[in-house]
Computed example of a mutant assay.
Amino acid sequence: MNESDTRLKLIDPAIMKSWDRNTQVFTEYFFTSGEIVVRGSMVTRKDKKKADYLLMYAPGIPIAIVEAKDTEHTVDAGLQQGMGYAQLLDIPFAYSSNGKGFVEHDFLTGKERALAMDEFPTPAELWTRYSKAKGLEHPYSQEIVTAPYYQEHGGNHPRYYQCIAINRTLEAIARGKNRILLVMATGTGKTFTAFQIVHRLRQTTEVRKVLYLADRNILVDQTIDGDFKPLKRVTTKVVGRKLDSAYEVYFSLYQQLVGENGEEIFREFDSEFFDLIIVDECHRGSAAADSAWRKVLEYFNCAIQIGMTATGGARRRGVRAS
C-alpha cells in the first residue's frame, strides 16, 4: 500500500478517532517557505518544510507531529524526520507510522515506545502529560496557557516562531515568573507577538490593565494603529500630565511618565494599577541601574514585566527572565 493510501485508510482513522479533523488535525502542514540560498548573483530557495500531520491541542498550541510512511517501511522510518520538525516547532511529542503501528518519541522524558494503531493518545492524554512535565497542572496555570489567541478571518496569524515565543511567555507566567525577557530578531514581528500575549492574558483573570512603554513616538503610534488596532476601543496614549484610569491598555513614552523635570507623573497611578507592562526595545535604557526610566518599572513592581529586544546584549546589561 502506498503512502497516500496508508494515510487515508489506516493512519487517518487511528488519529481522528479522538482528534477533531477540523480544529486539531492539520495535514500536509507547511511551516517554512524554504531556506534562501545565495550563490553569487543567483538566489534560490530550498524545499519548504512540511509535516504530514500537525496535531493541535487548541488553536496555536501544537502538541504532536506525525510522519507517515507506506506499509513497506518499518514503523519507525519517519521518526527522525518527525523529531526534527518537532524540535523546530517546539513540540513535545513526535510519532512515526507505517499504518501497522506507531512509534512515539517523548521529548519531555527522552523515552520512546511502540503503540498499536488503536493506542494513539487522545488530546487530553497528551496535554495531561505535557502539563505535568511542565508544572502547569494547577487550574490557574491552565487558565493562562490555554487562553485563546486573537483570530480574525482573513487577518494575520502567528508564524510558528511567534507561537513559540507567545506560548513560552505564557507558560513562564503560568509558573509564577513575572520578569521575562523576549529576544526576537529584527523583522520577526515583536509587536504582533506582544499583541497576542496581551490579548491572551486579557482573556484570563490575571491581567486587565496593561502599560506598553517605548522610547519613540513613532513606535507608539505605529503599534496602536497597527498590531494593537483590535484593542483600540480600550486603548489610550498618555499625553501631557493627563492620566485617564477609564482605559485598559495604555501606551506611553518612558520620558512622558517620568516627566521632563523629573515630576514622576507615573505616581498619579496607584502602584498596583497595572497588571502587565511591556517594555519595547528594553535594551535602550530601562536595563541601566541608574536609568530614570527604571523608576517606572520599580514603582509598578507588582506587575508582570516583559522586556522585548532584538539583541542578546540586554541580558548582559541586567535584563533577564527571573
Rank of each mutant, 00 (worst) to 15 (best):
K9A: 15
P13S: 09
P13R: 05
A14C: 06
S18A: 14
D20W: 04
Y29V: 02
Y29R: 03
F31Q: 03
G34H: 01
V37D: 02
R39P: 03
V43F: 05
V43H: 07
V43Y: 09
Y53L: 02
Y53D: 04
Y57F: 10
P59A: 05
A68W: 07
D70N: 13
E72F: 11
V75H: 02
G82A: 12
M83C: 15
P92C: 09
Y95V: 04
S97A: 04
S97P: 04
S97C: 02
F102L: 10
E104D: 10
E104F: 11
L108K: 00
P121M: 05
P123H: 09
A124M: 14
Y130R: 00
A133Q: 02
K134M: 15
E137P: 08
I144W: 06
Y149V: 01
Q151M: 12
C163H: 14
A172M: 12
I173T: 01
A174P: 07
N178Q: 04
L181S: 14
T188P: 11
F195Y: 00
H199S: 02
H199K: 05
Q203V: 12
T204F: 04
T205V: 10
E206A: 14
E206N: 13
R208P: 13
Y212C: 06
L213H: 00
D221L: 11
T223M: 09
D225E: 15
K229Q: 12
T235W: 05
V238G: 03
R241P: 11
Y247V: 06
V249M: 09
Y250F: 09
F251L: 03
S252H: 05
L253S: 11
Q255I: 00
N261F: 13
F266L: 08
L276W: 00
I278G: 07
A287E: 12
A288P: 10
A292H: 14
K295T: 01
L297F: 08
E298D: 14
F300P: 08
T311M: 04
T311Y: 03
G312A: 15
G318C: 08
V319A: 11
